[in-house]
Design a protein around this nucleic acid. Structure first.
Lengths: 208, 208, 208, 208
DNA sequence: GATGAATGAGCGTTCATTCAT
DNA sequence: GATGAATGAACGCTCATTCAT
């Protein structure tokens, strides 16, 4: 441990410990959800796996849903930052296929890392109580995509950028999740990526 | 109701009563799921709304999940018969846009009739225990679509018919559900249908 | 069917039918209890096996326990008539071993015919609500045995005939049931009978 | 309580609390079973009488039967230790009547302390699901008795030690329970003990 | 802060019993 | 009389949450 870290630790010993505890709980929740599913994700079980008491868990999360929300937020942020890097201004001039491929491939990696977790997060995202959170996330996704669509030099086929962004994103997201959960015939991960890239490209971009 | 059905109904008044009760329970379940969500769909509440006792409910359904399954099956069958009529052999020569439009429009009607219910059925379909049921349904959908794709005279762009069927179906299904639940900016139902038809057409069919 | 029987049947057609129904229900109850145990002996299941409706069952038995009571009574009567014939006045002069053997053997047959049923009846007999019925039966058993003990010419060892009757009867009954349910090592049915006869004889009778 | 036990208790106050709760639950269960019978022994009622919530009850017992099993085990162990001390090697030379009397008297005390409980435990022991537990207990009882019978210097009448042990034990056990539950005429506790001692002695031992 | 024993609302389910047909 | 659809009290059990230590 470097001096810098030590002084930081000494300055806020509670925060450092706190963060470690929060991290352990979220890690445990992720593991439990991914491996055992949502029915096994009781507060008691998550606390056990995290190696903390149930009382401690409730000191960091006001209720069970707050844990799921935190996990959801983490994945939301990962997806957003992924898209933001792929669709940033520097890439406006790249070949459309290259750009789309990098987004699709990134999302595929995200999902494949923990399919069970994303299954649960998809369920969670469909609950009525989550509507606002999901909506807010979707608006941010749409904004990123629309912003890129409007600025790109590629010849676009869609007039309604908002609609196009929504349709493209939902199609990729849902097909990818369904594919991961069902592994349907003739659909390896590579094939899936190719198909989704084609789907999005042919929908969005003028083919010469 | 055909004469045959009528006479059958007259012959067994008890069965008629039973069917009315089953119908009431399924109706109540649909209503509860659509309006109040899955957490409100307790056996007690469904029985209350159906106007029957909890005991009666259990005389017709062995357990709570059997009710959800019955509802799921009903929607599965509706979706399948919808696609089967739109993608039947008689329509092989029709303009692709017309065919795709009729499928997308049909699904849109199905979903719009009870978006809340389809939200819950989507959740239900994501549960691990439901994997086989969903998989079986998906295989039937894929079979119907693939069969049409292979037989149609329209110039196809996809080599892998299975993959194409899966991707097209999942994209339409999920985007439609998400749209209905979120009503994102610039996406009326009419726009959505147009966009999804374009999505599917440009993905599947050679554009001249 | 003889004329005599026919006229009897014509005179009371309802009673004949009734008796057949009662018989069917008791037979079904016996079968269910013996083969499937008390947990399977729901009124619905008994009615099913009897081939009558649940409504009919309740026309002949006011409540579930009445069925068990009827079965219990039947076995009570069988045991009593068994003992009565073995311990009747005609047998007062027989060799004690012969008399005891015939009682023990008779009880063994009764139990072996339906061990599962007797297991259930033993459970039933232990319930608080059954105390009076069991007590009444025991008093009749004791009376029969005591009557024989007092009258027999065999040289008795017991001063208290009531106590002796009770102890002898309970010992035989319980050991027999336990043996049937557990089949303990080294205890075939024949051995069991020999041991119980020895037990009773050495307890009751002066050995020369 | 030994020093060791005390220090262990002081070291873990939580465990002390837990043990108190377990004790309260078992005490409540004993009381309910003894006074109100098995039908009143619902989890809710036991928890109420114990002064704890239903949730607490389930923190210590995985299911209702585990409570009954714990009680059964306790009585099993008491009976076994009783017999073991009475039939230990030190007593091999004692007068048979003395040895048998101490066993019978011990069992009588055990049963008389809570006749209602033993009534229920007898019921419980007769259930099919309990067969293995009861069988295991019976084998231990038989082993203890047989071991003594084989080693004793008293002149035995029985060739089959296993059978003799089983018959003697079942006879004493069942007669005692029946007597306690029915209090039949002419059978005080003292008389009962005398009769049972005579029963066992005359069955097992050569009378001079 | 950390602990984990305690809580209790609420769930899914069973089954003896009733009564309109 | 016979039927069986309907009833609902009551059960065993779970698990998110609280709070005294």
């Amino acid at each position: 441990m470097s001096k810098h870290e030590m002084s930081a630790a000494r300055k806020r010993p509670r925060q450092a410990r706190s963060q470690a505890t929060v991290h352990a709980i979220l890690g445990a929740a992720t593991q439990v959800l991914d491996r055992e599913g949502i029915d096994a994700a009781t507060t008691t079980h998550i606390a056990e796996v995290a190696g903390v008491s149930i009382g401690t868990l409730y000191q960091y999360f006001p209720h069970r849903d707050a844990i799921l929300n935190a996990l959801q937020d983490r994945e939301f942020e990962r997806a957003l930052s992924l898209m933001q890097s792929a669709l940033c201004e520097d890439n406006l001039g790249k070949a459309p296929r290259e750009t789309v491929t990098s987004v699709v491939r990134g999302l595929a990696q995200l999902y494949a890392a923990a399919p069970g977790l994303h299954r649960v997060l998809a369920i969670e995202g469909l609950r009525v109580a989550q509507a606002d959170r999901v909506h807010a996330f979707d608006l941010r996704v749409i904004a990123i995509i629309r912003h890129f669509l409007i600025a790109t030099r590629a010849p676009l086929r869609r007039a309604n950028a908002d609609a196009a962004a929504f349709v493209a994103y939902q199609s990729v997201r849902a097909t990818m999740l369904a594919s991961l959960l069902e592994r349907p015939p003739g659909l390896t991960e590579a094939t899936l990526i190719d198909e989704l890239v084609d789907l999005v490209l042919s929908y969005l971009v003028e083919t010469e």
